[in-house]
């Protein structure tokens, strides 16, 4: 066991528990906080994958902006815990978990198990660096990049339209 493995195990455990927390927490604020932790740990998982730029972007975009928005909305609307509660005896609970288990076992047997021996190549200098991402973003992926910017613009307009007070 080296440091890297320990780090991975810790991070993935944190991520998984935080993920469970998102689903199981009664109060939306706690769900949101769990999600923050989840995303933070995913960001650090990115770091372990040597995707520094993506990790920091993950923190900036998800943790710094999106989750703050979530918290803001939850607080602004003062959403309490599910008044009706999460029905433990909800008819959908059991089938949903069943489906999840089925899918997990199916994929892990069919996909994850064969991939277990996958080699871990030594990354080049500059893998995941801002230069590499920038270069491919502005050369090969410039069209999707522009489309994404338009999408963001549309998103802004849509959000303003949806959220503004009716006159």
């Amino acid at each position: 066991m080296q440091g890297r493995e320990i780090l991975f195990i810790v991070l993935s455990l944190v991520a998984c528990f935080a993920g469970l927390g998102v689903v199981l927490a009664k109060h939306p604020i706690k769900s949101a906080l769990s999600l923050v932790v989840n995303m933070f740990s995913i960001a650090f998982l990115y770091f372990t994958l040597e995707a520094n730029m993506l990790g920091i972007t993950q923190i900036m975009v998800y943790v710094g902006a999106i989750m703050v928005l979530f918290l803001f909305v939850v607080m602004l609307l003062n959403i309490g815990s599910d008044r009706s509660g999460m029905k433990i005896l909800d008819l959908k609970l059991v089938p949903a978990i069943l489906i999840a288990l089925l899918m997990f076992s199916l994929i892990s047997f069919q996909v994850l198990y064969p991939l277990f021996g996958m080699q871990y190549p030594v990354a080049d200098e500059g893998f995941g660096s801002p230069e590499a991402i920038g270069k491919s973003l502005f050369s090969q992926y410039v069209l999707p990049f522009e489309v994404a910017s338009v999408l963001l613009l549309v998103g802004i307009v849509g959000a303003i339209l949806l959220a503004r007070r009716k006159a």
């Binding site: 604020i29 920091i56 923190i59 900036m60 710094g64 703050v68 918290l71 607080m75 660096s129 801002p130």
Partner: peptide, 24 residues
């Protein structure tokens, strides 16, 4: 690190959590 400036921005955006959660 090679993303130092971004790091500053990312961490400064985390500063809100303390305030927001304290308020809540």
């Amino acid at each position: 690190i090679n993303i130092g400036v971004l790091y500053v921005l990312a961490i400064s955006s985390l500063g809100s959590y303390g305030v927001v959660l304290a308020g809540y």
